[in-house]
Computed example of a mutant assay.
Amino acid sequence: MHVLILGGTTEARALAGLLYGRVRVTSSLAGRVASPRLPAGEVRIGGFGGPEGLAAWLREHAVDAVIDATHPFAERISFNAARAAATAHVPLLALRRPGWVPVDGDDWHPVASLSEAAGALAGLGDRVFLTTGRMGLAAFADCPQWFLVRSVDAPDTPMPTRTEILLDRGPFTLAGERELLARHRIDVVVTKDSGGAATSPKLTAAREAGVPVVLVRRPPVPEGVRTAATPEEAAAWVATRPGASPAR
C-alpha cells in the first residue's frame, strides 16, 4: 500500500513515523523552508502543477490513499488535493489539528486576513510580535508600529520599516515566550489560528501579561472530505484500507 502525505507539519511527520514500516510512505513538502525536518519514509519536495498534475502523480506512482496534513493556512493545496483525489479515484483524508479556543483572560481580536490584522493594530499597541510567517509581511509594510518578526527562514518580501527579525523554529516554551514578550516590551501579538501545542505558549504568555492578540481566522476548507484530528486517528484510518499491514 502506498500512502501520500501532503505537508511538512508536526502532525505529518508524526503520521509518517506511525505508518513507516507498515505501508510505503511518501511525504510531499512544499519546499518553503530551506532546511525542513524530514519525516520517515520517502520524501519529495516541490509542487505538483495544480490538481491535474497531482492527479497524474497519484496515478503514476500507484498511490492508494492521500492524507492532507498541510498547514491550516495552506488552503490552495487542500483544494487541489480534493480535486486530484476525486479525479484519480483515490481515498482522501484531511488531518486537521483543532483550532485554538479562547479562555478566561484572553483578549483576542479575530480578523479574516493579514490585511485586516494590519488595520486592527491601530489603538492596540506600538510594539508588535508578528508570528504569521515570512510570506505575508507585505500586508504590514505601511504600518508605523515596531515589529518583532519571528520566522524559520529570513524574510525576503516587503516588510515594515521598523522591524527586527528573530530566526527561530518551534516548539516554543512558555518560559521562553514570557521572557521574549518582556524583553522586547511587546504590547500586541499578531498570529494565525494555526492550532496545536508547538506555538500556543505565546497565547498563554500574552494572556498572563494582559497583551491583546490579533488572531487571523482560518480560511475555508473543501467540503465533504473526511477528517481526523490526530496522527493516531489518521493512522487508524489507513489501517482500515486494503493492503495495510497490521499495527506494530
Rank of each mutant, 00 (worst) to 15 (best):
T173Q: 07
R217L: 13
A138Q: 14
R134N: 07
R178Y: 03
T163A: 13
A205N: 02
A182R: 13
E179A: 13
R162N: 12
A206P: 00
L180F: 04
A205C: 06
D156F: 11
G133K: 07
A205I: 09
F172K: 03
T199G: 03
D168C: 10
G195K: 02
V213N: 00
R218T: 04
G210T: 10
R218S: 02
E164P: 00
D187H: 04
P220L: 13
P201I: 12
L181Y: 01
A209E: 00
L148V: 11
P160V: 13
V190P: 01
G170D: 05
D193S: 07
L137M: 12
P155Q: 14
G176T: 09
R218A: 04
A139F: 06
P171H: 06
L203V: 10
V211L: 03
D168K: 08
L215Y: 02
T173F: 11
A197E: 15
R169E: 11
A198H: 06
P144D: 09
R134E: 06
V216G: 01
D156C: 11
G176H: 05
G210P: 01
V216L: 09
F172N: 01
L167S: 01
F140H: 05
P171N: 06
L137G: 03
L174C: 06
Q145C: 12
G195H: 03
P212N: 02
E177F: 06
P220T: 09
R207L: 04
Q145D: 06
T199M: 08
V214M: 04
R162F: 05
M159E: 13
L148K: 03
V213E: 01
E177I: 13
F147H: 03
D153R: 11
V149T: 08
S194Q: 08
A139I: 11
R150E: 02
E177H: 05
V211W: 00
S194F: 07
P220A: 13
G210K: 06
E179F: 06
L137R: 11
G210R: 05
G133I: 10
G136I: 14
L180I: 08
R162P: 00
E179T: 07
Q145E: 15
R150L: 08
D153L: 14
L180R: 05
S194C: 11
R169V: 13
T191V: 08
K192R: 11
G176N: 05
P155G: 12
R183L: 10
A198Q: 07
L148D: 02
A206F: 02
G136F: 13
G210W: 05
V213T: 08
W146L: 14
V152C: 09
S200M: 10
A141L: 15
L167F: 05
G195W: 03
P219W: 07
E177V: 12
M135G: 09
T173M: 09
L137H: 08
A154M: 14
V189L: 11
V188N: 03
A209W: 01
M159K: 15
V188D: 00
P144Q: 11
A206Q: 01
W146D: 13
R169Q: 13
D168E: 14
T132E: 01
